[in-house]
């Protein structure tokens, strides 16, 4: 069923999509990621833009 099946309830039960990059290409849902890659994504820290972190 497409997202249109949620229509009448206007969003009830509809999650947010979170696109992430995995070894160079994008994946729309992390459901299909393997366990190690999920752990790696979870551990990623942001890189500050100052010269010293």
């Amino acid at each position: 069923m497409s997202e249109q099946s949620y229509n009448e309830k206007l969003g009830q039960g509809v999650g947010f999509e979170r696109i992430r990059r995995i070894t160079g290409y994008l994946v729309g849902t992390m459901d299909k990621w393997n366990d190690a890659k999920r752990a790696e994504e979870h551990d990623r820290v942001k890189h500050g833009l100052s010269v010293h972190a």
């Binding site: 997202e3 949620y6 309830k9 206007l10 969003g11 009830q12 039960g13 509809v14 999650g15 947010f16 999509e17 979170r18 696109i19 992430r20 990059r21 990623r44």
Partner: peptide
Amino acid sequence: NHPVDRDPVCGYVGVIGDVCPRCGRREGEQ
């Protein structure tokens, strides 16, 4: 890399924390 989230209900694309900045709903809410 940067977060690219989307709320399929209102179509907002950008960073979504707990609450969608456009329509104000939380995940799963109508």
